[in-house]
Design a protein around this nucleic acid. Structure first.
Lengths: 218, 218
DNA sequence: CAATTCACCGATAGTACTATCGGTGAACTC
DNA sequence: GAGTTCACCGATAGTACTATCGGTGAATTG
């Protein structure tokens, strides 16, 4: 039994994870303002100076936290969306493509809030890595929209699909926020609305593909 | 000419406005991190301690700033939206209803970002007032959607309109962010997308009003 | 078992900011 | 025009946080 006492490597890794978890807990309860090396370490039960054994500074910790979050939730969400794109007319797959990310967001509100804040805070310590992840998600979603049959023949149409991807993402986050705040108790209703938004914009964009039928937007 | 020297009241009011303008300038240039009583006062040309003649603390200033912004932009935005609701089939009025808030948001990018971020940060100094304003905007937008003919006959439909209002707002903010980040250079294209989103969801909700025609969402 | 490594600790220098206090002179009051 | 008010000022006590340093003991090495 070599596990009675922890090896030095295991012990260090455990402390590191405790620090990350502590930071996450603080972000969720006190917000970004409560995030200091001392506070994080006190919550994790180690000395303040131990912080610098594991991270160069707070920005370094936040970057690690963001990457962990995206590594956990990213692939699952992507998969659900791709399944929906493969069958654009299957309403249940469409709903699943919204349900999966919504449940991820609501299941780990602390991860979710962190990423949303990062998204709207390019000057924060998370800045660079958050922007990179956001761009990645957007590019993937554009791919999926094209796979679902939406037009991307001209640069303008491509840019429009990027806007739509941004929009779908923002809508999903907004519904999750509303649910977390208790205003939308039933997640299925939120999924209804998300599906309506997507179906609506999809109809608009497809109508645009055949402009000979006259103005479609009234 | 009694205005050669300022009255005490006028002078105080002028200083207060200078402090508010200074805070806004700092938010737009240095971001939230540069916001301190000393920095605000130095930029306004007064001593740091003078800050406390006008505001109880930084949160107090930010609250005042938020209220001033909402007092300035609120009615204009609301008016544009109402004009559009009065003529739901006028595409130019619809575009104006999106153009006005977009231009307001892009006018003071850092303040806009701060407000958005504050809603997702439980401990932000702006948090409470930002959430209050957000709820107000949502309620107004629901009114306008009803005025534009969208159904709100059942509690479920009312809740759905709230979700749609939240969504429109999030979409507008997202397009503003994209424009500010330089990804969407042409604001009119963003307006196109917003109009398409609204037309799309509008079609979906109106179709739902007459459910005897079968499932409309594929 | 002796030597070495290193995760963690306590202490602390340094920095930035908040908020208060008594003083000052110009505006105001009567 | 004598007394009062008060917006502003400089100084400063107090607070919070960052980042570094040398010491310590348990794990590791050979």
């Amino acid at each position: 039994m070599p596990d009675v006492t922890l090896s030095r490597r295991e012990a260090k890794d455990l402390t590191r994870r405790r620090l990350l978890a502590s930071a996450l807990r603080i972000l969720d309860t006190e917000g970004e303002a409560g995030l200091s090396t001392g506070n994080v370490c006190r919550n994790a039960g180690v000395a303040q100076s131990t912080f610098y054994v594991h991270f160069r500074n707070m920005q370094d910790l936040l970057r690690a936290l963001g990457e962990e979050a995206s590594r956990k939730t990213g692939p699952v969400v992507r998969d659900a969306r791709r399944r929906s794109s493969e069958a654009p007319h299957d309403p249940e797959r469409l709903r699943a493509a919204f349900r999966v990310p919504l449940e991820k967001m609501c299941g780990h509100p602390e991860f979710f809030r962190l990423s949303v804040r990062a998204r709207h805070d390019p000057a924060s310590p998370l800045g660079e890595s958050a922007r990179r992840r956001s761009a990645e998600i957007r590019a993937q979603m554009v791919e999926d929209l094209v796979a679902a049959g939406l037009p991307a023949d001209t640069p303008q149409q491509e840019r429009r699909l990027e806007m739509v991807a941004d929009g779908i993402n923002a809508l999903t986050e907004t519904m999750a926020m509303g649910h977390l705040e208790g205003r939308y108790p039933d997640l299925e209703e939120a999924i209804d609305v998300l599906a309506s938004f997507l179906s609506g914009i999809r109809g608009q964009l497809l109508a645009d593909r055949r402009p000979e039928k006259g103005r479609p937007d009234t």
